[in-house]
Amino acid sequence: MGQALAVRDLDLDLDAFEGPFDLLLTLILKEELGLPEVDVAEIVIAFVERLERREGAFTPAQLEVCGEFLVLVAALLELKARELFHEEGELDVEELDPDEAALELAERLAEYRRVKAGALWLEERLTAESDRFFRLGPAPAAPPPVRRLAPQDPARLAAALRVLAAEPPAPSLSHMPLRYPPVTQFLERFRAALRRRRRFVFDEEVDGLSRIEQAVAFLALLELRKAGEIKLGQPAPFEPISVWKAA
């Protein structure tokens, strides 16, 4: 009896996976490994190599192992084909009859075979060209294009420069001065009013002033109230404000 064959213990060394076939199947079924990443052909090659290394006669048990392997690989291929076709949305495998599917598969195999031959040629070419050394580097930026100027008249250029070099006019500050009297003016005015009278009505005192002057006057009123110099009274909102001296 030769070396025992066991599909599930088959050691694999793929791009996407390294370990026993059994673990690979588990990972795929748990969706922890994407089937499109797995090169099924390499699995087949690993199994065939294992067969090649086998010594002695082929026993019915080993034939059974081969059958099991074929079933597993066929299932893997079907799953993978579904995934690949499904992703592209190009073709539904279930819609194909067996002959069409076989034809499709044969065409794809032929295409892959051609590509594989191309890859082999590239590999050989790379080896043959391994003694070619050349400079490699990022392409430097090309110099900026030269802008050609029309003939210039120096006098006109000087005149143009003179315009640019002339002192600019002083900026106008006319909008800066205050357009309303300072608060202090109203402070004094209200203090003077309270020296003459015991109380006065604010609205009457500012009657005839502009809106902004009335606002400044009101600020002065608040200032006096804050300082404790006056008391204020108003019977109701928007009614006239009475002002009298604090005791």
């Binding site: 992703e87 794809r108 295409e111 892959y112």
Partner: peptide
């Protein structure tokens, strides 16, 4: 090189691997 320009899905279809 031979079939370009090609997209990733086309390459995956031909090689049978992502």
């Amino acid at each position: 090189a031979y079939l370009g320009p090609v997209s990733r899905p086309e390459i995956a279809r031909i090689r049978g691997v992502a």
